[in-house]
Design a protein around this nucleic acid. Sequence first.
DNA 1: GTCTATACTGAGATAGAC
DNA 2: GTCTATCTCAGTATAGAC
Lengths: 209, 209
Amino acid sequence: MSSAIQQPRRKSFRETQFEVREEAILEATNRLLATRGYEAMSMDEIAADVGVAKGSLYRHFDSKEALAAAVMVRLLRRTRAALADQQPGLPARARLEALLRWTLTERLAGGVPQLPSGSPSLQQALLAHRDYMDELMELSESVGALIRRAKADGELREDLRDEFVLYTLYARSCDPTLDFLKAGGSMSDEEIVDQMVSACLNGVAAGRD
Amino acid sequence: MSSAIQQPRRKSFRETQFEVREEAILEATNRLLATRGYEAMSMDEIAADVGVAKGSLYRHFDSKEALAAAVMVRLLRRTRAALADQQPGLPARARLEALLRWTLTERLAGGVPQLPSGSPSLQQALLAHRDYMDELMELSESVGALIRRAKADGELREDLRDEFVLYTLYARSCDPTLDFLKAGGSMSDEEIVDQMVSACLNGVAAGRD
DNA sequence: GTCTATACTGAGATAGAC
DNA sequence: GTCTATCTCAGTATAGAC
Protein backbone atom coordinates (compact mmCIF):
# COMPACT_ATOMS: atom_id res chain seq x y z
CA MET A 1 0.00 0.00 0.00
CA SER A 2 3.03 2.30 0.30
CA SER A 3 3.46 2.61 -3.47
CA ALA A 4 2.25 6.11 -4.18
CA ILE A 5 -0.12 6.66 -7.07
CA GLN A 6 0.52 9.93 -8.81
CA GLN A 7 -2.31 12.43 -8.47
CA PRO A 8 -2.83 16.16 -9.05
CA ARG A 9 -2.78 16.98 -5.36
CA ARG A 10 -1.52 14.21 -3.23
CA LYS A 11 -3.12 14.06 0.17
CA SER A 12 -0.94 13.99 3.20
CA PHE A 13 -0.62 10.77 5.10
CA ARG A 14 -2.55 12.15 8.01
CA GLU A 15 -5.39 13.24 5.78
CA THR A 16 -5.87 9.82 4.24
CA GLN A 17 -5.46 8.29 7.66
CA PHE A 18 -8.27 10.48 8.88
CA GLU A 19 -10.50 9.52 5.98
CA VAL A 20 -9.81 5.85 6.35
CA ARG A 21 -10.74 6.04 9.98
CA GLU A 22 -13.88 7.97 9.22
CA GLU A 23 -14.88 5.35 6.71
CA ALA A 24 -14.30 2.66 9.36
CA ILE A 25 -16.51 4.57 11.78
CA LEU A 26 -19.28 4.80 9.22
CA GLU A 27 -18.94 1.13 8.42
CA ALA A 28 -19.14 0.08 12.06
CA THR A 29 -22.08 2.37 12.71
CA ASN A 30 -23.83 1.01 9.68
CA ARG A 31 -23.42 -2.52 10.98
CA LEU A 32 -24.59 -1.69 14.49
CA LEU A 33 -27.47 0.35 13.17
CA ALA A 34 -28.58 -2.61 11.10
CA THR A 35 -28.32 -5.16 13.89
CA ARG A 36 -29.16 -3.35 17.12
CA GLY A 37 -30.95 -0.24 15.96
CA TYR A 38 -30.36 3.40 16.79
CA GLU A 39 -31.38 3.57 20.44
CA ALA A 40 -29.77 0.30 21.45
CA MET A 41 -26.48 1.18 19.84
CA SER A 42 -24.11 3.22 22.01
CA MET A 43 -21.15 5.38 21.16
CA ASP A 44 -19.06 3.10 23.36
CA GLU A 45 -19.91 0.15 21.17
CA ILE A 46 -19.00 2.01 18.02
CA ALA A 47 -15.71 3.16 19.48
CA ALA A 48 -14.87 -0.33 20.68
CA ASP A 49 -15.82 -1.82 17.35
CA VAL A 50 -13.62 0.57 15.39
CA GLY A 51 -10.84 0.36 17.95
CA VAL A 52 -10.81 4.06 18.68
CA ALA A 53 -11.41 6.17 21.74
CA LYS A 54 -14.94 7.34 22.26
CA GLY A 55 -13.85 10.94 22.47
CA SER A 56 -12.29 10.73 19.03
CA LEU A 57 -15.63 9.96 17.46
CA TYR A 58 -16.67 13.50 18.25
CA ARG A 59 -13.80 14.87 16.17
CA HIS A 60 -15.47 13.25 13.19
CA PHE A 61 -19.14 13.78 13.99
CA ASP A 62 -20.77 16.31 16.25
CA SER A 63 -23.23 13.91 17.80
CA LYS A 64 -24.69 10.47 17.68
CA GLU A 65 -27.51 11.78 15.57
CA ALA A 66 -25.12 13.39 13.11
CA LEU A 67 -23.24 10.12 12.83
CA ALA A 68 -26.40 8.17 12.16
CA ALA A 69 -27.49 10.76 9.63
CA ALA A 70 -24.18 10.42 7.79
CA VAL A 71 -24.75 6.69 7.54
CA MET A 72 -28.23 7.24 6.16
CA VAL A 73 -26.96 9.69 3.58
CA ARG A 74 -24.41 7.12 2.48
CA LEU A 75 -27.16 4.55 2.10
CA LEU A 76 -29.33 6.89 0.06
CA ARG A 77 -26.38 7.68 -2.18
CA ARG A 78 -25.70 3.99 -2.74
CA THR A 79 -29.34 3.47 -3.58
CA ARG A 80 -29.36 6.30 -6.06
CA ALA A 81 -26.18 4.91 -7.59
CA ALA A 82 -27.81 1.50 -7.95
CA LEU A 83 -30.70 3.17 -9.71
CA ALA A 84 -28.43 5.16 -11.98
CA ASP A 85 -26.51 2.01 -12.95
CA GLN A 86 -29.59 0.39 -14.42
CA GLN A 87 -29.86 0.11 -18.19
CA PRO A 88 -31.73 3.20 -19.35
CA GLY A 89 -33.63 1.15 -21.92
CA LEU A 90 -35.27 -0.97 -19.25
CA PRO A 91 -39.03 -0.44 -18.83
CA ALA A 92 -40.08 1.49 -15.76
CA ARG A 93 -41.77 -1.40 -14.03
CA ALA A 94 -38.73 -3.63 -14.49
CA ARG A 95 -36.54 -0.91 -13.03
CA LEU A 96 -38.76 -0.59 -9.98
CA GLU A 97 -38.71 -4.33 -9.50
CA ALA A 98 -34.94 -4.45 -9.86
CA LEU A 99 -34.52 -1.65 -7.35
CA LEU A 100 -36.75 -3.42 -4.86
CA ARG A 101 -34.79 -6.62 -5.35
CA TRP A 102 -31.52 -4.77 -4.86
CA THR A 103 -32.74 -3.17 -1.64
CA LEU A 104 -34.02 -6.40 -0.16
CA THR A 105 -30.83 -8.24 -1.03
CA GLU A 106 -28.73 -5.53 0.59
CA ARG A 107 -30.89 -5.64 3.67
CA LEU A 108 -30.65 -9.40 4.07
CA ALA A 109 -26.90 -9.22 3.59
CA GLY A 110 -26.92 -7.12 6.74
CA GLY A 111 -25.95 -3.84 5.20
CA VAL A 112 -29.00 -1.68 5.63
CA PRO A 113 -29.77 0.32 8.75
CA GLN A 114 -33.35 0.51 9.94
CA LEU A 115 -34.16 3.84 8.37
CA PRO A 116 -37.75 4.48 9.04
CA SER A 117 -39.83 4.98 12.10
CA GLY A 118 -37.40 2.97 14.17
CA SER A 119 -36.61 5.83 16.46
CA PRO A 120 -38.71 8.95 16.87
CA SER A 121 -35.79 11.03 18.12
CA LEU A 122 -33.66 10.05 15.16
CA GLN A 123 -36.54 10.68 12.82
CA GLN A 124 -36.79 14.18 14.20
CA ALA A 125 -33.09 14.77 13.70
CA LEU A 126 -33.16 13.51 10.15
CA LEU A 127 -35.93 15.88 9.19
CA ALA A 128 -33.66 18.74 10.17
CA HIS A 129 -30.64 17.31 8.40
CA ARG A 130 -30.09 19.11 5.12
CA ASP A 131 -28.02 16.50 3.25
CA TYR A 132 -30.29 13.68 4.25
CA MET A 133 -33.44 15.46 3.15
CA ASP A 134 -31.84 16.49 -0.13
CA GLU A 135 -30.81 12.93 -0.93
CA LEU A 136 -34.21 11.65 0.06
CA MET A 137 -35.95 14.17 -2.17
CA GLU A 138 -33.75 13.27 -5.11
CA LEU A 139 -34.38 9.58 -4.69
CA SER A 140 -38.10 10.05 -4.20
CA GLU A 141 -38.24 12.16 -7.33
CA SER A 142 -36.55 9.49 -9.39
CA VAL A 143 -38.65 6.66 -8.05
CA GLY A 144 -41.79 8.78 -8.35
CA ALA A 145 -41.02 9.39 -12.01
CA LEU A 146 -40.62 5.66 -12.56
CA ILE A 147 -43.95 5.02 -10.89
CA ARG A 148 -45.72 7.53 -13.11
CA ARG A 149 -44.05 6.06 -16.17
CA ALA A 150 -44.96 2.51 -15.21
CA LYS A 151 -48.54 3.59 -14.73
CA ALA A 152 -48.55 5.21 -18.14
CA ASP A 153 -47.21 1.95 -19.55
CA GLY A 154 -50.18 0.19 -18.01
CA GLU A 155 -47.89 -1.85 -15.77
CA LEU A 156 -48.97 -0.43 -12.42
CA ARG A 157 -52.44 -0.09 -10.98
CA GLU A 158 -53.90 3.32 -11.69
CA ASP A 159 -56.18 3.25 -8.67
CA LEU A 160 -53.32 3.28 -6.18
CA ARG A 161 -51.92 6.68 -5.30
CA ASP A 162 -48.38 7.45 -6.37
CA GLU A 163 -47.41 8.21 -2.78
CA PHE A 164 -48.90 4.96 -1.65
CA VAL A 165 -46.83 2.97 -4.12
CA LEU A 166 -43.71 4.94 -3.28
CA TYR A 167 -44.02 4.41 0.46
CA THR A 168 -44.97 0.79 -0.03
CA LEU A 169 -41.78 0.09 -1.96
CA TYR A 170 -39.81 2.10 0.55
CA ALA A 171 -41.34 0.20 3.46
CA ARG A 172 -40.42 -3.20 2.06
CA SER A 173 -36.79 -2.51 2.85
CA CYS A 174 -37.52 -2.45 6.55
CA ASP A 175 -40.30 -5.01 6.65
CA PRO A 176 -39.94 -7.14 9.79
CA THR A 177 -41.13 -10.08 7.72
CA LEU A 178 -37.59 -10.29 6.42
CA ASP A 179 -36.14 -10.65 9.90
CA PHE A 180 -38.71 -13.20 11.00
CA LEU A 181 -38.16 -15.37 7.95
CA LYS A 182 -34.41 -15.11 8.19
CA ALA A 183 -34.55 -15.95 11.88
CA GLY A 184 -36.82 -18.88 11.10
CA GLY A 185 -34.08 -20.31 8.96
CA SER A 186 -36.29 -22.41 6.72
CA MET A 187 -35.95 -20.16 3.70
CA SER A 188 -32.88 -19.09 1.81
CA ASP A 189 -32.18 -15.41 1.32
CA GLU A 190 -32.93 -15.81 -2.35
CA GLU A 191 -36.30 -17.40 -1.71
CA ILE A 192 -37.22 -14.70 0.77
CA VAL A 193 -36.41 -11.98 -1.74
CA ASP A 194 -38.31 -13.75 -4.50
CA GLN A 195 -41.46 -14.16 -2.44
CA MET A 196 -41.26 -10.62 -1.14
CA VAL A 197 -40.90 -9.07 -4.58
CA SER A 198 -43.61 -11.26 -6.01
CA ALA A 199 -46.03 -10.59 -3.16
CA CYS A 200 -45.41 -6.87 -3.37
CA LEU A 201 -46.19 -6.77 -7.08
CA ASN A 202 -48.86 -9.45 -7.35
CA GLY A 203 -50.26 -9.77 -3.85
CA VAL A 204 -50.90 -12.88 -1.79
CA ALA A 205 -54.30 -13.73 -3.24
CA ALA A 206 -54.55 -16.39 -5.93
CA GLY A 207 -55.49 -15.52 -9.46
CA ARG A 208 -52.46 -14.67 -11.54
CA ASP A 209 -49.28 -16.51 -10.71
CA MET B 1 -72.06 3.97 39.57
CA SER B 2 -72.71 3.44 43.26
CA SER B 3 -75.71 1.17 42.67
CA ALA B 4 -74.33 -2.22 43.54
CA ILE B 5 -75.01 -5.08 41.17
CA GLN B 6 -75.49 -8.29 43.05
CA GLN B 7 -72.71 -10.79 42.44
CA PRO B 8 -71.47 -14.02 44.04
CA ARG B 9 -68.44 -12.38 45.66
CA ARG B 10 -68.50 -8.66 45.69
CA LYS B 11 -65.09 -7.06 45.43
CA SER B 12 -64.01 -4.57 48.00
CA PHE B 13 -63.82 -0.92 47.05
CA ARG B 14 -60.07 -0.95 47.25
CA GLU B 15 -59.84 -3.95 44.97
CA THR B 16 -61.91 -2.37 42.24
CA GLN B 17 -60.05 0.88 42.76
CA PHE B 18 -56.82 -0.99 42.18
CA GLU B 19 -58.12 -2.61 39.03
CA VAL B 20 -59.47 0.61 37.64
CA ARG B 21 -56.11 2.23 38.14
CA GLU B 22 -54.32 -0.67 36.55
CA GLU B 23 -56.58 -0.40 33.56
CA ALA B 24 -55.78 3.30 33.34
CA ILE B 25 -52.08 2.52 33.43
CA LEU B 26 -52.43 0.00 30.64
CA GLU B 27 -54.46 2.46 28.61
CA ALA B 28 -51.92 5.24 28.99
CA THR B 29 -49.05 2.93 28.19
CA ASN B 30 -50.88 1.70 25.14
CA ARG B 31 -51.29 5.23 23.91
CA LEU B 32 -47.68 6.19 24.53
CA LEU B 33 -46.43 2.97 23.02
CA ALA B 34 -48.43 3.70 19.90
CA THR B 35 -47.30 7.29 19.53
CA ARG B 36 -43.75 7.47 20.89
CA GLY B 37 -42.59 3.85 20.88
CA TYR B 38 -41.07 1.75 23.61
CA GLU B 39 -37.65 3.35 24.01
CA ALA B 40 -38.85 6.92 23.75
CA MET B 41 -41.60 6.43 26.31
CA SER B 42 -40.54 6.89 29.92
CA MET B 43 -42.05 5.69 33.16
CA ASP B 44 -42.29 9.32 34.22
CA GLU B 45 -44.48 10.06 31.25
CA ILE B 46 -46.76 7.17 31.99
CA ALA B 47 -47.06 8.17 35.63
CA ALA B 48 -47.77 11.78 34.73
CA ASP B 49 -50.31 10.72 32.12
CA VAL B 50 -52.21 8.52 34.56
CA GLY B 51 -51.85 11.02 37.36
CA VAL B 52 -50.06 8.63 39.68
CA ALA B 53 -46.64 8.54 41.30
CA LYS B 54 -43.94 6.76 39.38
CA GLY B 55 -43.18 4.49 42.30
CA SER B 56 -46.74 3.26 42.31
CA LEU B 57 -46.37 1.90 38.84
CA TYR B 58 -44.01 -0.68 40.24
CA ARG B 59 -46.72 -1.98 42.57
CA HIS B 60 -48.61 -2.98 39.47
CA PHE B 61 -45.82 -4.08 37.19
CA ASP B 62 -42.32 -5.25 38.03
CA SER B 63 -40.60 -3.35 35.27
CA LYS B 64 -41.05 -1.26 32.17
CA GLU B 65 -40.69 -4.38 30.08
CA ALA B 66 -43.36 -6.21 32.06
CA LEU B 67 -45.70 -3.29 31.62
CA ALA B 68 -45.14 -3.19 27.89
CA ALA B 69 -45.62 -6.94 27.71
CA ALA B 70 -48.95 -6.65 29.51
CA VAL B 71 -50.09 -4.13 26.93
CA MET B 72 -49.09 -6.45 24.14
CA VAL B 73 -50.94 -9.34 25.71
CA ARG B 74 -54.03 -7.19 25.90
CA LEU B 75 -53.68 -6.34 22.23
CA LEU B 76 -53.29 -9.97 21.23
CA ARG B 77 -56.36 -10.86 23.25
CA ARG B 78 -58.39 -8.15 21.58
CA THR B 79 -57.21 -9.40 18.20
CA ARG B 80 -58.18 -12.95 19.01
CA ALA B 81 -61.54 -11.72 20.19
CA ALA B 82 -62.08 -9.86 16.94
CA LEU B 83 -61.27 -13.05 15.09
CA ALA B 84 -63.62 -15.09 17.23
CA ASP B 85 -66.43 -12.61 16.66
CA GLN B 86 -66.42 -13.22 12.93
CA GLN B 87 -69.25 -15.18 11.40
CA PRO B 88 -68.11 -18.79 11.32
CA GLY B 89 -69.71 -19.31 7.94
CA LEU B 90 -67.48 -16.73 6.30
CA PRO B 91 -64.91 -18.14 3.84
CA ALA B 92 -61.32 -18.24 5.07
CA ARG B 93 -60.03 -15.63 2.71
CA ALA B 94 -62.77 -13.19 3.63
CA ARG B 95 -61.96 -13.72 7.29
CA LEU B 96 -58.28 -12.97 6.73
CA GLU B 97 -59.18 -9.85 4.82
CA ALA B 98 -61.56 -8.71 7.53
CA LEU B 99 -58.95 -9.31 10.21
CA LEU B 100 -56.39 -7.30 8.28
CA ARG B 101 -58.89 -4.52 7.86
CA TRP B 102 -59.72 -4.56 11.55
CA THR B 103 -56.05 -4.37 12.50
CA LEU B 104 -55.27 -1.50 10.17
CA THR B 105 -58.29 0.45 11.32
CA GLU B 106 -57.33 -0.02 14.96
CA ARG B 107 -53.82 1.09 14.21
CA LEU B 108 -54.87 4.24 12.41
CA ALA B 109 -57.23 5.05 15.24
CA GLY B 110 -54.11 5.20 17.40
CA GLY B 111 -54.76 2.12 19.44
CA VAL B 112 -52.02 -0.26 18.40
CA PRO B 113 -48.54 -0.23 19.89
CA GLN B 114 -45.60 -0.83 17.61
CA LEU B 115 -45.24 -4.49 18.37
CA PRO B 116 -42.54 -5.79 16.19
CA SER B 117 -38.88 -5.13 15.75
CA GLY B 118 -39.32 -1.65 17.14
CA SER B 119 -37.04 -2.29 20.05
CA PRO B 120 -34.55 -5.13 20.28
CA SER B 121 -34.48 -5.06 24.08
CA LEU B 122 -38.25 -5.30 24.28
CA GLN B 123 -38.25 -8.03 21.68
CA GLN B 124 -35.91 -10.01 23.86
CA ALA B 125 -38.10 -9.53 26.89
CA LEU B 126 -41.23 -10.59 25.05
CA LEU B 127 -39.66 -13.84 23.93
CA ALA B 128 -39.20 -14.73 27.58
CA HIS B 129 -42.69 -13.63 28.57
CA ARG B 130 -44.91 -16.67 29.03
CA ASP B 131 -48.33 -15.06 28.59
CA TYR B 132 -47.26 -13.09 25.57
CA MET B 133 -45.82 -16.10 23.81
CA ASP B 134 -48.87 -18.19 24.60
CA GLU B 135 -51.22 -15.61 23.19
CA LEU B 136 -49.04 -15.17 20.14
CA MET B 137 -48.98 -18.92 19.53
CA GLU B 138 -52.74 -19.16 19.82
CA LEU B 139 -53.30 -16.32 17.41
CA SER B 140 -50.72 -17.63 14.96
CA GLU B 141 -52.35 -21.04 15.05
CA SER B 142 -55.76 -19.59 14.25
CA VAL B 143 -54.50 -17.39 11.45
CA GLY B 144 -52.31 -20.18 10.14
CA ALA B 145 -55.32 -22.45 9.93
CA LEU B 146 -57.20 -19.80 7.97
CA ILE B 147 -54.29 -19.45 5.58
CA ARG B 148 -54.21 -23.19 4.93
CA ARG B 149 -57.95 -23.24 4.44
CA ALA B 150 -57.87 -20.30 2.05
CA LYS B 151 -55.17 -22.02 0.06
CA ALA B 152 -57.27 -25.18 -0.12
CA ASP B 153 -60.14 -23.03 -1.35
CA GLY B 154 -57.90 -21.80 -4.14
CA GLU B 155 -58.12 -18.25 -2.80
CA LEU B 156 -54.48 -17.79 -1.80
CA ARG B 157 -51.33 -18.39 -3.82
CA GLU B 158 -49.96 -21.87 -3.23
CA ASP B 159 -46.41 -20.87 -4.07
CA LEU B 160 -46.08 -18.54 -1.10
CA ARG B 161 -45.07 -20.21 2.14
CA ASP B 162 -47.57 -20.23 4.97
CA GLU B 163 -45.12 -18.47 7.26
CA PHE B 164 -44.48 -15.86 4.64
CA VAL B 165 -48.17 -15.04 4.34
CA LEU B 166 -48.61 -15.06 8.11
CA TYR B 167 -45.75 -12.65 8.75
CA THR B 168 -46.78 -10.49 5.83
CA LEU B 169 -50.24 -10.00 7.30
CA TYR B 170 -48.73 -9.46 10.71
CA ALA B 171 -46.28 -6.89 9.38
CA ARG B 172 -48.98 -4.79 7.75
CA SER B 173 -50.15 -3.70 11.16
CA CYS B 174 -46.88 -1.89 11.78
CA ASP B 175 -46.11 -0.80 8.26
CA PRO B 176 -44.62 2.69 8.32
CA THR B 177 -46.50 3.39 5.13
CA LEU B 178 -49.53 3.97 7.31
CA ASP B 179 -47.76 6.67 9.30
CA PHE B 180 -46.35 8.39 6.26
CA LEU B 181 -49.69 8.51 4.51
CA LYS B 182 -51.49 9.67 7.62
CA ALA B 183 -48.85 12.33 8.18
CA GLY B 184 -49.17 13.38 4.55
CA GLY B 185 -52.80 14.16 5.17
CA SER B 186 -53.98 13.79 1.61
CA MET B 187 -55.74 10.50 2.19
CA SER B 188 -58.56 9.63 4.56
CA ASP B 189 -58.11 6.78 6.99
CA GLU B 190 -60.62 4.78 5.06
CA GLU B 191 -58.81 5.25 1.78
CA ILE B 192 -55.51 4.28 3.37
CA VAL B 193 -57.00 1.08 4.72
CA ASP B 194 -58.64 0.26 1.41
CA GLN B 195 -55.47 0.68 -0.60
CA MET B 196 -53.42 -1.21 1.95
CA VAL B 197 -55.75 -4.19 2.01
CA SER B 198 -56.06 -4.21 -1.74
CA ALA B 199 -52.33 -3.93 -2.32
CA CYS B 200 -51.62 -6.67 0.17
CA LEU B 201 -53.99 -9.08 -1.53
CA ASN B 202 -53.61 -8.07 -5.16
CA GLY B 203 -50.25 -6.31 -5.34
CA VAL B 204 -49.34 -3.01 -6.92
CA ALA B 205 -48.85 -4.29 -10.44
CA ALA B 206 -51.62 -3.86 -12.99
CA GLY B 207 -53.54 -6.80 -14.31
CA ARG B 208 -56.51 -7.57 -12.15
CA ASP B 209 -58.20 -4.68 -10.49
C1' DG C 1 -6.17 14.27 16.37
C1' DT C 2 -6.13 10.86 19.63
C1' DC C 3 -6.06 9.43 24.11
C1' DT C 4 -7.79 9.06 29.31
C1' DA C 5 -10.69 10.78 32.55
C1' DT C 6 -14.75 13.08 33.87
C1' DA C 7 -18.93 16.01 34.00
C1' DC C 8 -23.80 15.84 33.30
C1' DT C 9 -28.20 14.11 32.31
C1' DG C 10 -32.17 11.14 31.85
C1' DA C 11 -34.41 7.30 33.27
C1' DG C 12 -35.34 2.79 35.60
C1' DA C 13 -35.85 1.14 39.96
C1' DT C 14 -36.04 1.20 45.24
C1' DA C 15 -36.67 2.94 50.29
C1' DG C 16 -39.32 4.50 53.84
C1' DA C 17 -42.98 7.48 55.73
C1' DC C 18 -47.96 7.63 55.91
C1' DG D 1 -50.81 0.98 48.09
C1' DT D 2 -49.51 5.45 47.34
C1' DC D 3 -46.62 9.09 48.00
C1' DT D 4 -41.86 11.73 48.03
C1' DA D 5 -37.20 11.33 47.82
C1' DT D 6 -33.24 8.92 46.44
C1' DC D 7 -30.10 5.50 44.44
C1' DT D 8 -27.75 3.72 40.48
C1' DC D 9 -26.28 3.26 36.18
C1' DA D 10 -25.81 3.81 31.33
C1' DG D 11 -24.73 6.81 27.93
C1' DT D 12 -23.78 11.35 25.56
C1' DA D 13 -20.71 14.76 25.43
C1' DT D 14 -16.59 17.50 26.94
C1' DA D 15 -11.84 18.78 29.04
C1' DG D 16 -7.15 18.52 29.10
C1' DA D 17 -2.72 16.07 28.51
C1' DC D 18 0.30 14.45 24.85
